[in-house]
Amino acid sequence: MRSGQYTLFLLVFLFITSCVTRPEDLIIGDWNEVEWDYEKFDGFSPKDFKKIDGINLRNYSDRNLIRHEAEIWTFHPDGTIELKEDNGEVITKARWLLKGRGHILKIRYDEKTFELYDVKRLTEDEMTLHYDIGMEVRGIAKLGFERNKKEE
């Protein structure tokens, strides 16, 4: 390739880079929880699963799955997150972090308590998270969100 072609390639690359919204910016705002789907679990031993909302949910002894009762998740630019009820009352405050290439959402409550989610989809209007139990394992719960535009 000639130097002109290199420059053109570099300019196109820089243009694309400048047009793309970073996940850290995209996630800021209010998100309404619209769905909770659980992974199907075929275990029969009562030790292996617990029942939540009438659905068998597998127990993972090394982690405590926090069942969110919040309806709205508010991500602030300063790295804090508020989990709110539908009426706007704040249930929990925590810190949010994006890891990897922006595909892992870490919600840290304190030094020892945190949750990890795979960010499966993140657009202007929709966000889908999978509760993460390992790098190569499918999430046990899928959370669907829609951006709350009323609040903005």
Partner: peptide, 30 residues
């Protein structure tokens, strides 16, 4: 960091996956 750093096979697959999904920020990073 939740990212492998001593092998590129996985990153190559992720690169294709992110293009298909249209996650352009991730495409650039990978």
């Amino acid at each position: 960091f939740f990212a492998f750093t001593s092998n590129v096979t996985g990153h190559m697959a992720i690169f294709s996956e992110e293009i298909v999904k249209g996650h352009w920020h991730q495409v650039i990073i990978v």
